[in-house]
Design a protein around this nucleic acid. Structure first.
Lengths: 185, 185
DNA sequence: GTCTATAGATCGATAGAC
DNA sequence: GTCTATCGATCTATAGAC
């Protein structure tokens, strides 16, 4: 498929897919070049820091997307339950019912963890805290809310692992349904 | 640390640690050689199929360990709740409260998934089914038991992701405590 | 900005001496 | 069985023409 790349940002989606499919180590520059439609010269023009900078840019883009589409609604929606419902819908679409992995979660399990430790930590802490806030506003006691938030974020990550391992989206979909039921109760 | 390697099997623990720490792609033969204490010649003597065969041997070893220490107790313990309690204790030790990742889960998220799809599928299906059996014997209806088993296996995997991402064992320990409470209820 | 060519290191894997 | 030496391929990254 043809790609129009005029600035660095245009290459990010293709970069993200390559890192998701092959991991940090598995994403070779030749593969990246092929999938972005950019020669190595262009890649190093946009990302002088090489593969590290490409992955960092992808992580930053993911963080921005989640901040806008998941965390902010959790914190700001007048009805916290609506914010959580919004999160679940967004997450189900984003992860394609578990058939598309969470790049940050995969990095957390792999060799790239130390390299991007701060970004990874920030992503999960922000998610957990935003969800915890929503649960407090929904009426839960603070300590209970924090633990529930942690449980839900972990459940989503685990559902992705299981869905990918079994090769079917059903475990992910069931997990989303369980979370929805738990929250709306 | 010195290693005594007389047969193929003696190299498996070191191999497993290298694959766990660096992933399939990240585990280079020179790193494997260093950590097992075996030269490349010896490695290819024991594993003629190269890195693929090494990883396959590790996965087989993991499967055997879980079969003996986790799945069999789940299926055979006269008191199914005791079997589940045994599973949780074994898992907490094995994964070092989330500071040691699940190799099969990490492979499921990474590039190695396609290569070892069958082993990965079998591992998670066996775990889910053995736990489901135990829950049926504990009195749950079959459909409810299957869903609970899936939920628990996913919760463990998600707890590992979160613990690794946040760099602390607490999320994993809390998840184990929640599962225990859910089952014993 | 984008390309080709290529450097320099490291990859997985093999050969052959011992 | 284990080692050293080394193969060809591939890796990340750079240089320089256009």
């Amino acid at each position: 498929m043809p790609k129009i790349v005029r600035e660095r940002h245009d290459a990010i989606p293709a970069l993200a897919e390559v890192f998701r499919e092959h991991g940090f180590e598995g994403a070779s520059l030749s593969l990246i070049s092929e999938r972005t439609g950019l020669g190595k010269g262009s890649l190093y023009h946009f990302f002088p820091g090489g593969k590290d900078e490409m992955a960092a840019a992808v992580l930053a883009d993911v963080a921005t997307w989640f901040e806008s589409n998941v965390f902010a609604p959790l914190r700001n929606d007048a009805d916290p339950r609506k914010g959580i419902g919004h999160m679940l819908t967004a997450v189900e679409t984003y992860f394609q019912s578990g058939m598309r992995i969470c790049l940050v979660g995969a990095f957390a399990l792999g060799d790239a963890r130390d390299r991007f430790a701060e970004s990874i930590h920030r992503y999960f802490a922000a998610w957990r805290d935003a969800l915890g806030d929503a649960l407090v506003r929904a009426g839960l006691e603070r300590k209970e809310a924090k633990e529930r938030a942690e449980e839900i974020v972990a459940a989503i990550q685990g559902a992705i692992v299981l869905a990918r391992a079994l090769g079917e989206p059903a475990p992910f979909r069931r997990a989303m349904r369980r979370i929805r039921a738990m929250v709306m109760r």
